[in-house]
């Protein structure tokens, strides 16, 4: 990959990319590594007892009590249309805070905190359906790996009011 092309792309995409560079918390869903802006992460907790709530969308596992606060838990695999897997020792819940709402996200494994510069963030290629591109705000490049940056608002909080009201 030549610098000019990268620069060209960067110039083209700079206007379209919605996220700025900075620190990201990365996690795995299966083999794929995703990234979330670290400023939106409240905390990381191990797997706790999730209480199922009736009349919730399929991707909402239920709710849990986090030190007195009721937090809805989203199964990100379901949300992304991936197949469900059993919980493991490494399954974690990342609690996201956005515009005053809290949302727990069930992920297979928490990876690390990485720095991704803005220049390393690229636009999501609009090859697939539009919805998928809506869930990603960009694709970060760290060394040789690719980290898909989750569009937090669209993925986590573009949900029915009833779900958000739980928090």
């Amino acid at each position: 990959m030549s610098d000019t092309k990268v620069l060209g792309q960067e110039a083209d995409s700079s206007s379209n990319v919605e996220v700025d560079g900075g620190k990201f918390l990365t996690f795995f869903l299966g083999e794929e590594e995703y990234a979330i802006e670290i400023m939106k992460v409240q905390e990381i907790i191990g797997l706790m007892k999730i209480t199922p709530v009736p009349k919730m969308p399929g991707y909402i596992r239920g709710v849990l009590n986090l030190r007195g606060k009721i937090v809805p838990i989203m199964n990100l695999r379901t949300r992304f249309g991936l197949e469900e897997v059993e919980n493991t020792d490494e399954t974690c819940i990342i609690v996201i805070q956005h515009e005053g709402y809290l949302m727990g996200v069930l992920v297979d494994k928490v990876s690390e905190v990485v720095d991704i510069s803005t220049s390393d963030i690229e636009e999501v290629p609009s090859v697939g359906a539009g919805e998928q591109s809506e869930y990603l705000s960009g694709i970060g490049k760290v060394d040789d790996s690719v980290k898909m940056i989750v569009e937090v608002h669209k993925v986590l909080f573009d949900v029915p009011e009833a779900v958000l009201n739980k928090s």
């Binding site: 992460v41 409240q42 990381i44 907790i45 191990g46 928490v110 905190v113």
Partner: peptide
């Protein structure tokens, strides 16, 4: 986990 939270 603690380290990650600390990093956050």
């Amino acid at each position: 986990l603690l380290a990650l939270n600390a990093a956050v």
